[in-house]
């Protein structure tokens, strides 16, 4: 029996942008409702295809037709990277950047939005983690005995993002376009407390990198929707094939991260046992603490 979620009061999180839906999933002129940070929120597309978001009104139930022009009490909104982003507070002028999104020959699309019973930071950490590949994504992203996580670099950039580079891992089938095992190099990026991205060699063109992101919608502190976003160089596989591959990978992660206890990410160093492979997660946890985030985490006792 999950306790009834109380609305978020974390000022840092309230002021952030949050993803709520893939733009392609929205029926223009119809009410859609979801939950964000413990409060219901509604959205639609106006006549020009622009998203409109408002705090849910019991009179406007999901599926009902709505004239967006009559919604006056609107929440801030951005249509970016195939998703609608909103905020309950005073969000920054711009969302983080994904320069690859603007490369004209890339295929960019929303791959899946999947509910997961865990906190957003737990899902970010799992996304940054290579050590689980041979055990959770066996035969695809990793395989025994190639279990070693070699030393890599983690930094916090001038733009205040966590970036991990030189991340090498042996992968039997790193991407759908891969045909044989290879050492794959990853770059990981956390440009937003609830967003994680990775860049990895695109099998058809080793000089370029596929970019894959998860945008996490914190439904409550311990319940999220993971929105998968792809920005691919692959021109062989169909959108559907790429989506299915991404869903398969995420479907393997879901039962694992739903069984991490506690669900909120503990920031106290003595809560869990890090090893060198967890360098990026240690940096991420400290970075969250420095940002003053309290929603979806267990802050270190003062």
């Amino acid at each position: 029996m999950a306790p009834v979620a109380s609305p978020c009061t974390d000022p840092v999180v309230l002021d952030m942008w949050h993803p709520i839906s893939a733009v392609a999933e929205i029926k223009p002129g119809r009410v859609h409702t979801t939950q964000l940070l413990g409060s219901p929120v509604s959205y639609t597309l106006d006549g020009d295809g622009r998203p409109v978001v408002w705090r849910a009104d019991p009179a406007l139930r999901p599926g009902m037709p709505v004239d967006a022009a009559r919604i006056t009490e609107r929440l801030p909104v951005i249509d970016r990277f195939c998703f609608v982003w909103t905020s309950y507070g005073d969000p920054p002028d711009r969302l983080f950047s994904i320069p690859e999104f603007d490369e004209s020959d890339r295929r960019t699309f929303a791959a899946a939005s999947i509910g997961v019973h865990t906190s957003a930071p737990r899902a970010v950490e799992n996304f940054l983690d290579m050590g689980h590949f041979p055990y959770v994504h066996t035969g695809i992203l990793g395989v025994e005995p190639h279990t070693e996580v070699v030393e890599y670099d983690v930094d916090i950039t001038d733009d205040n993002e966590v970036v991990a580079t030189r991340c090498l891992f042996y992968q039997p089938l790193a991407a759908l376009a891969a045909t044989k095992g290879q050492m794959t190099e990853y770059t990981y990026r956390v440009p937003h407390p609830y967003v994680a991205m990775l860049y990895k060699t695109a099998p058809p063109d080793p000089s370029r990198l596929d970019a894959i992101a998860i945008f996490l919608q914190a439904v409550t502190e311990e319940q999220i929707v993971a929105h998968n976003f792809l920005c691919m160089v692959d021109h062989t596989n169909t959108d559907s094939e790429l989506k299915i591959f991404q869903q398969k990978i995420f479907g393997q992660d879901k039962p694992i991260i739903e069984n991490q206890m506690p669900r909120r990410l503990p920031l106290a160093p003595r809560a869990e046992t890090p090893i060198r492979a967890d360098k990026s997660s240690i940096t991420y946890r400290r970075w969250l603490a420095d940002l003053g985030i309290t929603y979806g985490v267990i802050p270190e006792a003062a």
């Binding site: 689980h132 039962p255 869990e272 090893i275």
Partner: peptide, 27 residues
């Protein structure tokens, strides 16, 4: 305790090989 010390995964998901219990997350 039903938690792997590493990242808190439930060990009930793990694999009992007769001599050891292996965590399903990172082995």
């Amino acid at each position: 305790e039903n938690r792997c010390l590493h990242r808190g995964s439930r060990l009930t998901l793990g694999i009992n090989d007769g001599a050891e219990l292996m965590c399903r997350y990172h082995g």
